[in-house]
Amino acid sequence: MGLDIYKINPEFKDIMPREIIELEENATWSTKMNKPRGIKELPETKELLEEHSLCAGCPEAAALRYVLSALPKPEDTVIVNSTGCTSLMFPHIALHTVHSLFGNQNAVASGIKRVLEWRFPDTQKDVVVLAGDGATVDIGLDYTLQSFFRQEKITTICFDNEVYANTGGQESGMTAKGQVFKMAPTGKKFDKVPMWELATTSGCHYSINMTASAPKAVAKAVREAILIAREIGPTYINLYTPCILEIGLSANEGLGEMKDQDKDRFASYKHISPEAEAYLKKCKEEGLL
């Protein structure tokens, strides 16, 4: 692991595809940057997500681009993902990704983090869980909360689209009350699970509920969450990325839907523990934020 694996063998430089050469020369690896990585570099630099096979206009794809652009140290980051729409994107990322079974992503991430701490005691390795709401809150709720109880130093990011989207539209725990889907015709009977509050109660040092409507805000939250997870303990980001197909919107309407929900179900919620706040202050002084 580390940036060494992205060095092209000089003998073969002229037969490598352009995208790979750009990945080596023009991606924002943290060692090449004299300031924290961020979304500002997205237009000029090579992205870590080459292409993806999600639907046109999917807010989840946009959110993943923001997340990847904001990782503090991508070359030393392992991403653990789970079954869902998101698992279609992860094979395309130029980073280490592990696809876990449906729901046990936080358990897998815990193991990876512990082994990395033992194997590379001198290097800071970040483990980030990226999964959908079905994996995080329904099927994997036990593993997610248990990792918070154990104070595992991992960041959990939930792409909350409020539905099981790639299996045809079944309701999930995160679906809003009364919502009707193709395979939930009578409407949901109970309220949306307030996972961000559960995370706070379960011991997360940083828990935030937001939509992906503002790229800068997403990038800032991701950076803060990962830095806190390095030193203090578990962090959680609940990110609304609506499934435009399942709620009947066109490709260009995802952003509008997220902006609407900024004032409704995803009105800002942010919890930072006092020690995490003090640590963030220190990070700011050191120029890490």
């Binding site: 073969f12 037969i15 490598m16 595809p17 790979i20 080459e50 292409e51 993806h52 096979s53 094979p91 395309h92 990322i93 130029a94």
Partner: peptide, 9 residues
């Protein structure tokens, strides 16, 4: 070349 195993879709 086959520089990596990411599916190219």
């Amino acid at each position: 070349p086959m520089p990596d195993y990411r599916p190219k879709y």
